[in-house]
Amino acid sequence: MLKGVNRVLLGIVGLVLVVLGGSVLAIGLGAPAPSWWLHDGRHDVLLDEAERTRWRDEGWWWPAVIAVLAILVLLSLWWLLAVLRRRRPAEVLVDTGDDEDASLRGRALEQALAEEASHLDGVDRAHVLLTGRRRAPRARVLLLLRPHVDPGTTLRSLTRGPLTHARNSAGLPTLPTETRLRAVKHPPERVT
């Protein structure tokens, strides 16, 4: 969801900046000002003396400006951190039992889980994605099931097999998992 919100916000901000920046550039180069433009011509300033000093004597003005700017800065920082934060752990820390940790590549664990899950009865394909932190990973599993397969049986097989093996081999106390089951859609066949 965050990826979609990020794209929409970036698109809106980019569009506004391109329209305003292009209008300012065009008017500055001598093009006639559009009817919706705030100012009259190329020598008009963005904020004249009256507009700049209009609210200066009001007691609420400067605290309101500072509050709005502070909120904008905090929202921008939150957005930047949300974009930069990694969704997938590059490695999972494995407890070796001798008071030291070893690291296991996150993609290797994903591939091992997907490979073992794809060999379960009734599973056509499996996709695995690790999320969370290095010491507490979480798994998202998508199983594409063949027609006429009991989803409950497949889910129990996944829990008792690949997920238990992955949790035990990585030395994790738990491996929270979100599993999605979908039926494989085959193209219709002609019967003659």
Rank of each mutant, 00 (worst) to 15 (best):
L145I: 02
T153D: 14
R107E: 15
Q111W: 11
V16A: 13
R42Q: 15
Q111E: 15
E116H: 13
K185T: 14
N168S: 14
T164C: 00
R86F: 04
A70M: 08
L142K: 13
T53S: 15
V83F: 05
L72P: 07
S169A: 15
G161P: 05
E91T: 15
A108G: 12
A50Y: 02
R182D: 06
V68I: 15
W55H: 13
A126E: 02
L181V: 07
I71H: 07
S23A: 12
L72V: 14
T153H: 10
G22W: 05
S103F: 10
W78Y: 12
G106E: 03
R190Q: 11
P63A: 08
V45F: 06
D150I: 04
G14V: 06
W55L: 14
L74W: 09
Q111K: 13
T179G: 06
R167Q: 06
L72K: 11
E115A: 14
R52I: 04
A183F: 09
D95Y: 04
Q111I: 10
L17Q: 06
V94S: 07
L143I: 00
W79N: 09
E110N: 06
R182M: 09
R88V: 13
R133S: 15
T131H: 03
M1P: 08
L163R: 01
G41M: 03
T153S: 11
L80C: 04
D40F: 00
D99R: 15
A102Q: 07
L38P: 08
A26L: 07
A90P: 09
H39T: 12
P147I: 00
E110H: 03
A90D: 13
P89M: 01
L9A: 15
E49M: 03
R167H: 01
V73A: 10
G41I: 05
L75R: 14
E58K: 12
V19Y: 00
W79E: 01
A170P: 03
D48K: 10
V19E: 03
L17P: 04
R56K: 12
H165S: 07
R125H: 08
T53R: 14
I66T: 11
L109D: 00
A112S: 14
S169V: 10
T159F: 05
P188F: 09
L29F: 08
A33L: 05
D101I: 15
A102F: 07
V73W: 01
R86L: 11
W79T: 08
P89A: 04
P63L: 07
L15R: 02
E115S: 15
W62V: 12
A64W: 11
V191N: 03
G106T: 05
L29N: 01
R167C: 05
G21D: 01
L77N: 04
R135H: 08
L113E: 09
T53K: 14
T131Y: 02
P162V: 02
D98K: 09
R87P: 02
D121F: 12
W60H: 07
V141R: 00
L175Y: 02
P151M: 00
P89F: 02
E100Y: 13
